[in-house]
């Protein structure tokens, strides 16, 4: 780190920190969905990245339509909702057709959803083409502001951050403050007892899974503001988001948020000082080492299994 003055270092940290925050947002939204599906239900959804891609493609399509009819400035808020809806619906159907038969066999779910992800990737490629597409960002999302001379913060990053915070809060309220969340948690803790007290555990599973997918869809919408979308976009994030969930401690929302923050920041700051592949390698290695020392993750939820 020599060759930089202290103030330069601070600017680098601030800017890499903020670019880390955009990565954090997408990663966190992905991981939130996974934390619900994996943490609450114990299902490994390898196709989670493709649900993100569904959201992203929905947003891109909507932006095209919006430009045509000239309401390009407002479509984005609607696109977020639509991305959630489409991904939720597909997730619901996937649970119905595939996942519900495999709850007792977690490793098989992993393989089946991997197969699903291959099919979805090819479907994207056949429908939207192999080239990456990007959404037309509304004007108010473009540009950046400069708090100091050397620091430059893009507005879309800040917007996505806000969105992430809102979704986090929503998930928290849903899981820990609502009737539905109560049922979800009851089912997680003791499926048989939950069934015995009259909770429709199958329906809970279905909605929980679909909700996780829907949040991945929102992640996709957020993703369009920072990069363009291709058929394999989702698969680039799947391993990272699994790392976030496992590292944070499955079933712990707080852990997921903190570990997403840690991983994204470490990656982004390390990538500035080393080359980008080494930054990633070091981050992943550190996580794997910590996981070997503390397999239950940072925050282990106290759940009777």
């Amino acid at each position: 780190m020599d060759g930089y003055t202290t103030s330069e270092l601070w600017s680098i940290f601030a800017m890499q920190g903020f670019s880390g925050l955009s990565l954090l947002s997408v990663l966190l939204l992905m991981a939130l969905g996974l934390a619900i599906i994996f943490g609450q239900m114990g299902v490994i959804n390898m196709a989670h990245g493709e649900f993100m891609a569904i959201g992203a493609y929905t947003t891109v399509m909507l932006s095209k339509v919006a430009l045509e009819y000239g309401f390009g400035n407002y479509y984005f808020l609607f696109a977020i909702v639509a991305s959630f809806g489409v991904a939720f619906l597909v997730g619901y159907l996937v649970e119905l057709g595939l996942i519900q038969h495999l709850y007792k066999r977690p490793l098989d779910t992993l393989l089946a959803t991997w197969g699903l992800s291959l099919i979805m990737q090819q479907a994207f490629r056949s429908t939207f083409g192999a080239k990456e597409v990007s959404a037309e960002l509304p004007e108010w999302l473009m540009g950046s502001f400069k708090p100091t001379e050397t620091v430059d913060i893009p507005i879309n990053g800040v917007f996505v951050m806000g969105l992430t915070a809102v979704v986090c809060l929503g998930v928290f309220i849903f899981l820990f403050r609502s009737r539905w969340g109560l049922r979800v948690r009851a089912t997680t803790q003791n499926r048989v007892m939950a069934g015995a007290v009259g909770i429709n555990t199958k329906k809970v599973d279905r909605v929980t899974f679909a909700l996780g997918c829907g949040i991945a869809g929102v992640a996709g919408a957020a993703f369009t503001t920072i990069a363009s979308t291709g058929p394999t976009t989702g698969s680039l994030y799947i391993v990272d988001s699994f790392m976030v969930v496992v590292f944070g401690g499955a079933a712990s929302l707080m852990g997921t948020v903190l570990s997403a923050f840690g991983i994204a920041q470490a990656q982004s700051i390390l990538q500035f000082f080393m080359d980008s592949s080494m930054g990633k390698v070091v981050t992943l290695l550190v996580i794997v080492t910590i996981l070997m020392l503390r397999p239950e993750g940072l925050f282990a939820a106290k759940v009777r299994r």
Binding site: L102, L111, A112, G115, L116, L118, Q121
Partner: peptide, 14 residues
């Protein structure tokens, strides 16, 4: 091919 491969994963498991 990818459709088939994916289908194969699902079929074998299910």
């Amino acid at each position: 091919w990818l459709f088939l491969m994916g289908g194969l994963f699902i079929a074998v498991v299910m």
